[in-house]
Write a protein that binds this DNA or RNA. Sequence first.
DNA 1: GCCTGTTAGTTAATCGATTAAACCATAATG
DNA 2: CATTATGGTTTAATCGATTAACTAACAGGC
Lengths: 342, 342
Amino acid sequence: MKRITIRDVSVKAGVSTAAVSYVLNGREGKVSPETVLKVRRAAEELNYIPDFSARSLVNNKSKLIGVVIPQTEDRKQLLLQNPFYSELICGIEARLRQSGYHMILSGVEKGEGYLDTSMQRNLDGAIITGIYQESFYEDLKKVRMPIVLIDSYIYDSHFHVVGIDDELGGYMATKHFIDNGHTNIALVTGLIRKDGVVEKRFLGYKRALKEAGLFYHPDYVFEHSVTYEYGQEAAHLIAAKHPEITAVFATSDLMAMGVMRGLRDAGKQVPEHVSVIGFDDISVARMSTPPLTTIMQDTIARGITAADRLLTAIGNTDGELPAEPTIMPLTLVDRDTVRKLT
Amino acid sequence: MKRITIRDVSVKAGVSTAAVSYVLNGREGKVSPETVLKVRRAAEELNYIPDFSARSLVNNKSKLIGVVIPQTEDRKQLLLQNPFYSELICGIEARLRQSGYHMILSGVEKGEGYLDTSMQRNLDGAIITGIYQESFYEDLKKVRMPIVLIDSYIYDSHFHVVGIDDELGGYMATKHFIDNGHTNIALVTGLIRKDGVVEKRFLGYKRALKEAGLFYHPDYVFEHSVTYEYGQEAAHLIAAKHPEITAVFATSDLMAMGVMRGLRDAGKQVPEHVSVIGFDDISVARMSTPPLTTIMQDTIARGITAADRLLTAIGNTDGELPAEPTIMPLTLVDRDTVRKLT
DNA sequence: GCCTGTTAGTTAATCGATTAAACCATAATG
DNA sequence: CATTATGGTTTAATCGATTAACTAACAGGC
């Protein structure tokens, strides 16, 4: 089955390829109504489908968006096991498709940059999730396409940011514990990196403590990787060394699930002995036993918004308007893992 | 920042673009060692990155693979909420990247085909998950690229299949119940469609019953959508109308999780009152309470295998060797949701 | 009748690669 | 010495679009 080209259409319609191109791209002001009809019919009958590579070559628009997802440390696999990213992708894909764009989903090799991919594929834009080294972002700035960051707070006119108020989220969770009478509150979290979301949540945690006149115990903070396994491990530590702790704020639902398992391993009931709050409200949060109280963000909506913002940035060829971050709302979903201590 | 082209490299190296192309594509037999060196150096210094669109145009190879994921019924979103697909994608992406390929991840509009995308983007191959209407596959056959199917059993020389022995899986689960003394075994499943994976699991279920001399009760089969919610609903029905049922085989872990919740809602303990077995062993299976007994398949490995098979098919330009399906192994992971009735 | 403007359409250059074919030394062969 | 290989390199066509520049025809305006 040979490819149908614009040439074939032009021959069938009895006009030049230029005319076909004009018609098919909506520059109809330049073409008479009857020609438009002839071309339309010919294209239809031949079932003509344009070649995006050829297009991309001449006008530098590929209709391709790069989406970068963080990877597991050990292997070279995407971190999709955290449903947060899956949901994000659902949103992104839906919005992109709506506008005829496609998504190239990939991870980034450790130490490698993203410049290669972006140039090879002539990407029109990119959505970057996860947190990387400084040099990675420096590289990205050299690229001339719009970029939306999801997980990091780099306020730079080169980058768009679609985020949430992570500090507030951390505050809300901690405050909720305090309001329910808890005073010994642990934090279980991924690595706290500068300008990362986790750092902000950590700051919110501290603010709530301070505001309530509670001490901040550095040894109540359990900081490592954002995994179920680490949550479990942290819970073991808490149960063994800090029996006074009655509440655990995990900065990710995945970790919160692990914490709950770990506590149960150690013979502690949730929420009777220890209360737990998570973050994100991924779909499994409501499936857990007991259903997890968590800070909810509408991740799909966030994906849609990120894609939306990227697309409008791509549309605006008139210079680079520096980007004011978009902040999505948060809600505390009060399920069954927080006990009221009166 | 203007693009560095092969022309720039050729000028800097003082040779023709053809020479540069030969060097950079490894046809070094045609070029003298010193030219190779000059070109290498020039390309390096200019940081030359080839344009895949241009390449694709001339030799019809885009190094792009289409990956299709099913969508939710109502909205237009990908079905990534089922971690099965996320894991598959992890595997696929890892393998593709290793060979310099990229993945275009998308859903398919209801009723639409995939021909457009495949032609527009000049895809080198595709991995199709999910089950679609007959016409969709007919369309796919017209395309000249290799295709790997993941969720359907269409044995046709046009398609490669990387599957599991679903019938056996269904049999294993049911047999496990029977071996533990259960006789009233329900099946909770997605829509049973011809040539789909679910149908095979259903057949395995029936075979195990028959082999054990047990009756097959059509009203023990709860068939609807592959969601947590439906699992929950089915469990309610079971608890209300069929108190004699002591075991539930759910053809997806997601549904199994819902079943467990539903049983608990209805005041039934798992596994004390009712036992449950799932399918897939998605990561949340081990996180559930109690940890779910399930039929394990290594989904990441399956993704890797699918990509691998696709890549070799792409490599083999020597005619279309019809495809013998690849069958991945299954294991029953015996966790804590099956009770022994002695 | 001459000039200008408008409309509809075509021609041909261009994007950035690849590659068959041509070219040209120089070496080997009869 | 004429002829044929051979190895290294360049020339130029090609892939499938887009689009600036051009042409031709015709309508008005003076």
